[in-house]
C-alpha cells in the first residue's frame, strides 16, 4: 500500500486547511508521500489527486517538475554533491569522482544494497563552505575526500542519527492549534481587514 497512510492523511488534511485553494497543498502532500515511502509512488500520486480533486496527470505534472521528488526508489541515503560554481572552483568534481569511486556507483545511481544514491546537484546555498554536500538534505561542509570516507563509514555504522532516512525532510512541522488560526479567507468575496482602519492607539 503506498497510498497515504492514516497518519499522513491526518497531516495532509491539516495542511490542506491552511490554503484558500486546495491544490496549493500539492507540493507539501508530495513531500508527505515521499516521507512515507522514500519516493513518490504512482499510487500515492493517484491518492493525492483524489484528495485534492485534480487529475493524476496534474499531480505528475507538478511532481516531475521538482528535482527533490523521486519517482523511482532511491537509496536510504541520498548523497547530493554540490557542483555549483563555488564548489566547482574548490574541487567539487574531484569530490564527486571520489564519491563515485568510494560508493562504487556513478552519479545518478543507487548502490545495490539500496543504501546510497549519488547525485551531482546545483548550488545548495553553502557556497562559503565549498566543497559541500548534503545527505538527505543535511549539510556537510568543506568536505575532503577523507571526510567523505568517514561520513560514509559513520552512516554504515549507524552513527549518524542526525540524518533521518530519505524522505523525512524536516523533523519539525508547523502546527497551528485551531484556536490560534486566524482563518483562511475565501479567494473571492473577502473583505477589507478591520485593522486597516484603526488609528493605531488602542494597544
Amino acid at each position: 500500500m503506498s497510498r497515504l497512510n492514516e497518519e499522513s492523511l491526518r497531516i495532509a488534511n491539516e495542511i490542506i486547511n491552511r490554503y484558500p485553494i486546495k491544490k496549493s497543498a500539492l507540493i507539501p502532500l508530495l513531500h508527505l508521500a515521499q516521507e512515507q515511502e522514500g519516493w513518490v509512488t504512482d499510487q500515492a500520486m493517484r491518492h493525492i489527486a483524489e484528495i485534492l480533486g485534480v487529475t493524476p496527470a496534474e499531480v505528475l505534472g507538478t511532481c516531475s517538475f521538482y528535482e527533490m521528488f523521486k519517482r523511482s526508489p532511491v537509496g536510504e541515503y541520498q548523497v547530493n554533491v554540490c557542483h555549483g560554481i563555488s564548489c566547482h572552483l574548490l574541487g567539487a568534481e574531484n569530490l564527486l569522482h571520489h564519491a563515485e569511486d568510494t560508493l562504487g556507483i556513478k552519479e545518478g545511481e543507487t548502490t545495490q544494497d539500496g543504501k546510497f544514491s549519488l547525485e551531482g546537484v546545483e548550488c545548495i546555498a553553502a557556497c562559503t563552505e565549498a566543497p559541500c554536500l548534503q545527505v538527505n538534505y543535511r549539510y556537510q561542509n568543506k568536505v575532503t575526500t577523507s571526510d567523505f570516507n568517514e561520513l560514509v563509514q559513520e552512516i554504515i555504522d549507524g552513527e549518524r542519527s542526525d540524518i533521518p532516512k530519505h524522505g523525512s525532510l524536516a523533523k519539525v512541522r508547523q502546527n497551528i492549534s485551531p484556536e490560534r488560526l486566524a482563518g483562511i479567507e475565501p479567494v473571492e468575496h473577502a473583505e477589507q481587514p478591520e485593522w486597516l482602519n484603526r488609528n493605531g492607539q488602542d494597544s
Binding site: 493517484r46 496527470a57 496534474e58 499531480v59 505528475l60 505534472g61 516531475s64 517538475f65
Partner: peptide
C-alpha cells in the same frame, strides 16, 4: 479534462498522460 500534461522539466519536458 486535464489528462494530458507537461511532465518533467526544461529540455526534458514532454507532454504525456499519467
Amino acid at each position: 479534462d486535464p489528462l494530458i500534461h507537461f511532465i518533467d522539466r526544461g529540455n526534458a519536458t514532454q507532454v504525456n498522460t499519467f
